[in-house]
Amino acid sequence: MSDIATKPRSQSMAGRQTSRRVSRLLLWVVLTIAAASVLIPFGAIVLASLQDPASLTVSLAWPDRLHFENYANAWSTAGFSSLLGSSALIAGVVVPIALLCASLAGYAFATAPFPGKSWLMGLLLLGLALPHEAIIIPLFFGMKSAGLLDNQLAVILPLIGAFMPFGTLWMRSHFEQLPEELSEAAEMDGASTTRTMLSILLPVSWPALTTLGLLYFMWAWNQFLLALIMLQDPAQRTAASGLGKFVQQYGTNIPLLAAGTVIVIVPIILMYLIFQRHFITGMVSGAVKG
């Protein structure tokens, strides 16, 4: 704006305005294409889930009528009550325990000096880059000999471990941002560490904990490899690993498969739409900090 004011020549002003208008138009064209390329596959799968289940080939078209019965069929065929229940159980146990452990460790890293601190931090940083593929083989045989295969614990325990590096770093940078006087003042008053944490640090940590909790929930809910390997009994599978098996069994019945896919992604999309600020800042700034 200011550069227009400093250039008095009307011709260049007009030229600038048209070029500005053109670039704005270009911008919205590009953004619309980008958004459409994300949304069209979604719209397509939702449409496919409402097609006539008897049709042999399903392409992108408006269904003759909306076959909502595909959802009921997919729900009972794949056993989604038990799949979603298993996923919810895993997330419900993993999220609070991982939050507690990561917060405590992050607090220690942020506030207390202890021997081997930078060495331990390095060990945790390595865990951020370590692919799950590198640990699943011993985990599988370990859980097998412990008799924990087909038990949700076989997914829960490794997930908590794998969640520690990100969570510890996340909570450490949160506690580092808090003014030191906050915990010092409490300590001077003779409050115990536990009291300091509960009555002073916890209330100011809710936003950081909420973001981390939502990310943990999403990662637990979406986890595929561990669930696929550890829970091979169909009755114990999660929504994600159940969907993976469902494709192999009903790969040709597109309406049924599409309905199953929508059932699996709806919970996480709802969470995203409600808490999108947390998801975006968590993943963007979490990646930067890590």
């Binding site: 607090y107 207390a112 331990l120 865990g127 640990i135 083989i137 011993p138 471990g161 520690m164």
Partner: peptide, 30 residues
Amino acid sequence: RRRQRLTAVTCLAPALVFYLAFVVGPWLQS
């Protein structure tokens, strides 16, 4: 300082136990 160190160890222990038992240990086993 001793109290701080004790606090640090207590706070770190749960996270480290999970991390060592289910990430670092398995990797070494691999």
